[in-house]
């Protein structure tokens, strides 16, 4: 159990949730979160949006039963959290990066840009976000990104100068990741996708989050959530 530091509503039903405590995790990993409520039975997987010294921050969208319960949480409420789980984005990557996120898929990219800035100092990091409308959290990407491009309501994939990058991390709608993979393959870019799936255990034991890859069935929670684009599409 941990305490909620804040749970701020933003535009387009997005929320920023900060939970107090000391956490360590790799970029692209996730935590399982649950509020004690009769309307929320299972934990929800949540990608790390940001890690601070005194807490962890998640960016989520109020879309279903579980996130509606979370949206009602207040400062000081108790919440259960465990993790980190999953493989995370690879650290042993090279060259210039593009991070591409659509909708809630944006969440893992903020912490990823922060980590990349720290560990890959000599490389440029460009961030591309697809959103419905302008949102408060966007600007903070400028703290770490060398370039930030946001598209509202269209296809962010149309605005990426693919040939500039050695590595792409993407997370969001399947169509978006698929389009990126097509370009990545053509240009020989290392493309990593972070998948979102319904989960139960979150640790790799129950097989409700299986996805099909070129190498057979994989568990999104344990073998992923990050996979090579070419293994998925």
């Amino acid at each position: 159990m941990a305490l909620i530091e804040y749970n701020k509503p933003l535009k387009s039903k997005f929320y920023l949730l900060k939970i107090s405590g000391k956490y360590e995790a790799k970029m692209g990993q996730f935590f399982m979160i649950k509020k004690d409520s009769q309307f929320m039975f299972l934990n929800r997987p949540m990608s790390i949006y940001d890690l601070e010294n005194d807490g962890i921050i998640f960016l989520y969208k109020k879309i279903g039963k579980g996130t509606t319960v979370l949206a009602d949480c207040k400062k000081g409420d108790e919440i259960s959290i465990h993790g980190p789980y999953g493989n995370g984005f690879p650290m042993e990557v090279k060259g210039d990066f593009a991070l591409v996120g659509g909708g809630t898929g944006i969440a893992p990219l903020f912490y990823a840009s922060k980590q990349l800035k720290k560990y890959c100092k000599n490389n440029t990091i460009h961030v591309f976000l697809g959103l419905q409308e302008k949102n408060e959290f966007e600007a903070s990407f400028n703290n770490y990104a060398d370039l930030l491009q946001v598209n509202y309501g269209g296809f962010i994939t149309d605005y990426i100068p693919y040939e500039k990058y050695n590595t792409i991390f993407s997370c969001g709608p399947e169509l978006m990741m698929k389009k990126i993979e097509k370009q990545a393959r053509k240009l020989n870019i290392d493309h990593y996708v972070s998948l979102e799936k319904r989960m139960a255990c979150g640790v790799g034991a129950c097989l409700v989050c299986t996805c099909q890859t070129k190498n057979g069935n994989k568990r999104v929670c344990k073998d992923g959530p990050v996979f090579r684009g070419k293994d998925i599409f």
Partner: peptide, 23 residues
């Protein structure tokens, strides 16, 4: 066995439904 296609888990009141299909 590769298990079932489609959604494999669904939350219910005080419980869950699974359709893993013996993967």
């Amino acid at each position: 066995r590769r298990g079932n296609q489609g959604i494999r888990v669904w939350e219910t009141s005080s419980g869950m439904m699974n359709s893993v299909g013996l993967e």
